[in-house]
């Protein structure tokens, strides 16, 4: 089956240049194409016509690397639940649809070009403490640390975050609470994360606040946009961890 779409795409030459929507007619498209293959086709056409192609980030094509992402008709990663942009296929659109395609916008994310944004602020949150401090070679025999299966499963559900930033783009406050909560939760649940549990919660939240992310307003937009179904419970746990840390921290 083929469909025709009208694409309104945000074009912005650089971080400091003004941007605007430009309208393109897609021409006939097979509904088996992925959304990004559609952009590839558009880019091929623009290139041959002597125009600059649309810059967009993508890599694995399997919804796991977290590189891709754009807001499609107001929804980060588009209309299909639990699906990254690279896994979105045109069979979910109808002939004649207009798609408004724009970058992930948030105070903490800078637009580099067209749909490409700088999400390095997320990295700095992890850098503040989103790990277990264990040097290579000092690990004990793996089965000496038993982890109850439900605990391991819960930690895994938090750990599935791909760091795409859709939660931030979806949040009216531009908050990174779901992202931060997922990592804090994973390590707070596991025995391996206990020694640094208190400091981790404080350090990561402090970093998050300092980077221009907003706070959670319980809108739950992040959870709806998350391609990995990271639950908002992670934010509740983050809040509890922060409270707990505030009581127990020996920091001045």
């Amino acid at each position: 089956m083929t469909i025709n779409l009208t694409l309104r795409i945000w074009r912005q030459p650089g971080p400091d240049a003004p941007g605007a929507f430009r309208t393109y007619q897609s021409g006939p498209l097979s509904t088996d194409l992925s959304f990004l293959e559609m952009l590839d086709l558009l880019n091929e056409r623009l290139s041959l016509a002597g125009e600059e192609p649309v810059a967009f980030d993508h890599d694995c094509g399997e919804g796991i690397c977290g590189t891709c992402g754009a807001v499609v008709n107001g929804r980060p990663h588009g209309p299909v639940e639990r699906t990254t942009l690279c896994q979105l296929h045109l069979r979910h659109f109808n002939d004649g649809d207009t798609l408004i395609i724009e970058p992930f916008r948030a105070r903490a994310f800078r637009i580099e070009k067209d749909l490409v944004v700088d999400r390095s602020a997320l990295e700095r949150i992890i850098q503040a403490g989103g790990y277990v401090s264990v040097n290579t070679g000092s690990a004990p025999e793996a089965n000496t640390i038993p982890v109850p299966q439900p605990t391991a499963e819960a930690a895994m559900s938090s750990a599935e975050c791909i760091g795409c930033g859709a939660c931030v783009a979806a949040c009216p406050n531009g908050a990174a609470m779901l992202f931060t909560g997922a990592k804090v939760s994973q390590l707070a649940l596991l025995p391996q994360g206990q020694p640094e549990r208190t400091r981790r919660a404080l350090d990561m939240l402090r970093a998050m606040d300092g980077l221009g992310f907003g706070n959670c307003g319980n809108e739950r937009e992040c959870e709806a946009a998350c391609p990995k179904s990271i639950s908002i419970r992670n934010i509740a746990r983050l809040n509890r961890e922060f409270l707990r840390a505030s009581f127990f921290s020996e920091e001045e």
Partner: peptide
């Protein structure tokens, strides 16, 4: 061993192994 110490959430049996 190294990955487990880092908190990599490998699948577990009911006994936690």
């Amino acid at each position: 061993d190294q990955a487990v110490a880092q908190g990599v959430p490998f699948a577990r049996d009911y006994g936690g192994q």
